[in-house]
Design a protein around this nucleic acid. Structure first.
Lengths: 213, 213
DNA sequence: AATGGATATGACAGAGGTGTCATATCACAT
DNA sequence: ATGTGATATGACACCTCTGTCATATCCATT
């Protein structure tokens, strides 16, 4: 969404700008981010900024879209084998891949986390257009993505057919986002023992005590 | 947290202020809320505002705390019988009661929803101090609250003991918050068929297909 | 070296917000 | 009626930020 001028810039300068912007968005979020601060850190004059971008929103969308591209790189390999893997194995890998991604681009993580905090009116549309969810997960995190997974798993007889697909999709999406948050916050991006094993166990077998003691 | 002067005010004036404030916080959230707008709508002079409150934060905390009190009224009866009810019955009632509450105080709902979007640094502490969570759920939504519920349910033999209590608490809390959001948004506060029945079913029995066909 | 289109620059006007303070007003006890 | 402490008021000084614009600079082409 940036103006063509921006892409004609020498890479060094472009990087200075995007880094400063990502840093600002990561630390204070969209609403409180200040163009003033960004151009200050990037060391470019105010006038130039408006030569490259319409406004803050424009800059933000540009950043978001590059984040999406970055993340697709990390998830691509996992996503490609989605039909071959058992459902929960796939989900586990997605979380692992997301963790890898977060290690590589820590600022992206913070930006994504603060994404939903923004007051952009058309946020919904923006997200679907970019296929990015609030975890910064592209395509992956989509309701539709989960729908596909579940239909498949039902077909294969892996999971129960008694619950509507949409409901399960809602359930999986919720838990996946939540687990991501947990994994990414708790451990400060260290290697963790897969905490989510227990959670997946619950999701597979339910909470009800079926032992007859 | 408001100054004593505020509580000496005639109720009519106090209401004008709190209404205007709740309206503003509900519509633009904490960060973007403007004292200017609030005093404009409440029709009180700028100087008076600072006679009643330290600043925006002070006002916000005052509002939050009254929201907590309101909600406690609605959940009190359900909470009182927490030991007598089966776990998922209790959870269902909490959601229903939350829905009732949201009908009665629609602005509170929006304020709570935007709560987590605020950039208040000490938000965490504020929330625990107020025992309010991001659903505007007091006490109820706390991790500790779920810990108690689960310990009890394990004791009674209602749910499996194979998973650590803290993990289950995380799980329940996540799903309860998510269901609340679903219920409160989807239907625009109409009466709904209890969508969450299917979700509870999954949580009880798990997703794995155990029919041997 | 001259021309012209693209790019760079920072001063500037203007919007919107905050917290304070000197002054005015009130309520009430004397 | 008068003095006193509490309360009310809005003008004001001061910020931060945004988007624009007149002007300067660059660079490729003639």
């Amino acid at each position: 969404m940036a103006k063509p001028t921006f892409y004609n810039l020498p890479e060094e300068k472009r990087l200075r700008i995007t880094s400063a912007a990502r840093c600002e968005f990561a630390s204070v979020g969209y609403d409180l981010a200040s163009i003033q601060t960004i151009i200050g850190n990037a060391n470019i004059p105010r006038g130039s900024f408006y030569q490259y971008f319409e406004d803050k929103r424009d800059l933000f969308l540009t950043i978001l879209s590059s984040i999406r591209d970055e993340k697709l790189d990390y998830l691509g390999s996992v996503l490609s084998e989605w039909e071959r893997l058992p459902l929960f194995d796939l989900l586990g890998r997605l979380i692992e891949a997301g963790l890898e991604y977060a290690k590589a681009f820590p600022d992206a993580l913070q930006i994504a986390a603060k994404l939903m905090k923004s007051s952009m009116i058309e946020l919904e549309e923006v997200l679907t257009t970019l296929s990015v969810d609030n975890q910064g997960t592209p395509v992956t995190g989509t309701h539709d993505f989960y729908m596909r997974l579940i239909e498949h798993a039902k077909d294969v007889g892996e999971i129960t057919s008694e619950i509507p697909t949409a409901t399960i999709a809602f359930y999986l999406q919720t838990m996946m986002e939540s687990i991501s948050r947990l994994v990414l916050n708790e451990d400060g991006l260290q290697g963790i023992p897969p905490v989510y094993d227990d959670i997946f166990l619950m999701m597979k077998n339910g909470l009800i005590n079926d032992r007859d003691d």
